[in-house]
Nucleic acid binder design. Structure first.
Lengths: 197, 197
DNA sequence: TTGTAATCTAATTTA
DNA sequence: TAAATTAGATTACT
């Protein structure tokens, strides 16, 4: 078998997707996944490349395509209400309420949800991350993925957590002390700023 | 029913998690999800708060806990091999090979995977994002989620895409022209740098 | 080589 | 107080 760079690329993409979605680590329920893939494919292939910045129009479009695909739920991104009783079951009613209120607001571009909502981590998660931070304030991607697996916090959030933590902790220690932290001291002046790959 | 801020917080966390993992938009397969939740919970509750920076030790720990939970797969983050034939079925063998090679390398902290592997987007995805960018180079969280749904690209990746795109496109146009782009011109000097929430 | 995804710092805003 | 966002600079890889 020869080396196929195109296949390599496909694999890299797939792995990267996997790593963004730890759910894919689980035994897959293929039917659902294919539905999702089909959905995206149809949307893209029908070349909906008009600007989607009018949320109402996009909302309508999404609902339309979901109904074409025979998926009953309407898909408001950010407040979809799961039907099953797994994982989020206890919050279902409240989420439903939130979604309805959002609907009545009708102006998501206002103050209702410009930013991603702040995530709050519980004591165990914070403690865990702090321990890792004390050991190495610059965890690489693999480590971050490990932390994500253990804490249940998505890897991108963990990355942000470490960024913010470094901003607070390292700069403070560099002003008060000589930044004698294990791993790279790093925060020195403003040179060699890029990533350490 | 009274207002419960604690419940609100739980809901916010849940929504944020959902938004990081579009898979949760799908009809959930509850058993699998509970397995995952249980896994994380056990790991946290047994207070594995020792530093996880030795990947080999973590690897062993994860395998051990997976076996405790009766989950047969070993979970190397970044190169787990899915068993089903959905979504990634075509690449299974090749991914398996990659995972095995990674295993033999045994030194993930070297050059094998410090960074997240670069993701490549196909023409349609790029075209779609470019159209959105031309319309508004500062999509808010809701818009980014919409783009994520349509393109199948995870929201955090879309955020990075727009960051890089702004870095290239906006600064270039501001030097050559007067930055007369729709939406905020923004990139003017170096004041009011924070986020626009 | 060029283009682009990923990473970092520093400053900032919001809840 | 801390998570989220941005600009700007940099690095790695194709």
């Amino acid at each position: 078998m020869e080396h196929d760079p195109e296949l390599d690329q496909v694999i890299c993409n797939a792995l990267s997707l996997q790593e963004d979605y730890p759910d894919l680590y689980l035994p897959p329920s293929d039917k659902d996944r294919n539905d999702s893939a089909t959905f995206s494919k149809i949307l893209l292939e029908m070349e909906i490349q008009r600007p989607l910045n009018d949320p109402n129009r996009l909302q309508d479009t999404l609902v339309e395509f979901y109904s074409i695909l025979g998926i009953p739920q309407e898909p408001p991104p950010g407040n979809y209400v799961p039907q099953g009783e797994g994982f989020l079951s206890e919050e279902e009613m409240a989420i439903s309420k939130t979604a309805k209120e959002e609907k009545e607001d009708h102006v998501p571009s206002a103050s209702s949800q410009k930013c991603r909502k702040r995530t709050f981590y519980d004591k165990q998660q914070t403690l865990f991350l702090q321990k890792q931070f004390d050991c190495n304030p610059y965890p690489d991607y693999v480590s971050r993925c490990c932390f994500a697996q253990v804490t249940g916090i998505p890897e991108p959030r963990i990355q942000v957590w470490f960024q913010n933590r470094r901003a607070r902790h390292l700069s403070k220690s560099s002003t008060s002390q000589e930044a004698g932290i294990d791993g790279r001291p790093r925060a020195q002046t403003s040179k060699s700023n890029g990533h350490p790959c």
